[in-house]
Amino acid sequence: MEINKTFKYSFKTRWSDFDPNRHLRHTAYNDYAAESRVRYLNEHGFDMARFSKENIGPILFKEETTFYREITMGEDITIELFLEGLSENGERFKFLHKIYKENGVLSAEIIVLGAWLDLIKRKLTQPPADLVTTFKTLTKSENFEEIVLGVKN
């Protein structure tokens, strides 16, 4: 198993992502973070067809954004994804997204806490073992923690 695999993805921002202050609107940061997670999963064999076959989908319990520097109209961004937390069975996960301006300056950090939903039973479930293994290969954040089920994070 390859450990500490860094995942970075660059995006060209769109005109519609900016607000009247001519900087990236706050919700666009979260949209790009979600897109980076989807691209990470797709690149590792977990596309919509796979999730449909497994009858699972990711859900979020918490999303926290900290802003440092504005991204102005026309700037593109790069997102670096880190594993911030994982339960032993992979049911719960936590990701850290670091969003950088095109000059490399850290613009924002987004932390999401989520789990896997069985789309038939509508209950939380353990994902396939190969998905847990994939998560474990992602570079861990400095604040990585094991998520203990039954304990509020």
Rank of each mutant, 00 (worst) to 15 (best):
R69S: 12
E64G: 02
E63M: 09
N55V: 08
R50E: 11
K53T: 09
E63P: 11
Y68N: 14
R50A: 09
K62S: 10
E35N: 13
D76L: 00
T66E: 15
E64F: 02
R22Q: 14
N55E: 15
Y68L: 14
F61A: 09
R37M: 07
N30M: 12
R50P: 09
A49S: 11
D31M: 05
L24I: 07
R39N: 05
R69P: 10
D17A: 02
R22I: 11
V38K: 09
S16H: 08
D76T: 03
N55S: 15
D31K: 05
R14A: 08
I77H: 02
K62D: 08
R22K: 13
K62E: 13
A49Y: 15
T27W: 06
E35F: 02
A49K: 15
Y68E: 15
D19C: 06
T27F: 13
S16V: 00
A33C: 14
V38Q: 03
L41F: 04
F18S: 01
E35K: 13
D76P: 05
F51I: 04
R14E: 14
G57V: 09
E43N: 02
G57N: 10
S36E: 08
M73N: 12
N30H: 05
A28S: 14
A34L: 11
P58D: 02
Y29E: 03
Y32N: 09
I56L: 11
M73G: 10
T78I: 03
D19F: 09
H23Q: 06
T66R: 15
I77F: 00
G45A: 03
V38H: 06
T13M: 01
E43I: 07
R25Q: 12
I71S: 01
E43L: 04
T13L: 01
H23K: 04
V38T: 12
M73T: 13
A28F: 08
N21E: 10
E63L: 08
Y68V: 13
H44Y: 06
P58M: 03
A33S: 06
R50D: 08
T13A: 00
H26N: 11
A33M: 07
N30F: 03
R14W: 11
H23W: 06
G45V: 00
I59E: 06
I77C: 02
H23P: 05
D17R: 04
Y68H: 15
S36Q: 09
G45S: 02
G57T: 07
E70C: 11
W15A: 07
R37F: 07
A34P: 05
I71Y: 02
R22V: 10
R14Q: 14
G57E: 10
S16Y: 09
L60A: 11
T13V: 05
Y68T: 14
G74D: 12
E70W: 07
N55A: 13
T72W: 12
T13R: 04
T27K: 12
G74C: 11
L24R: 03
I59Y: 00
N21P: 00
D76C: 01
E64T: 14
R37N: 00
F61E: 12
G45H: 03
D76F: 00
A34Q: 04
H44V: 02
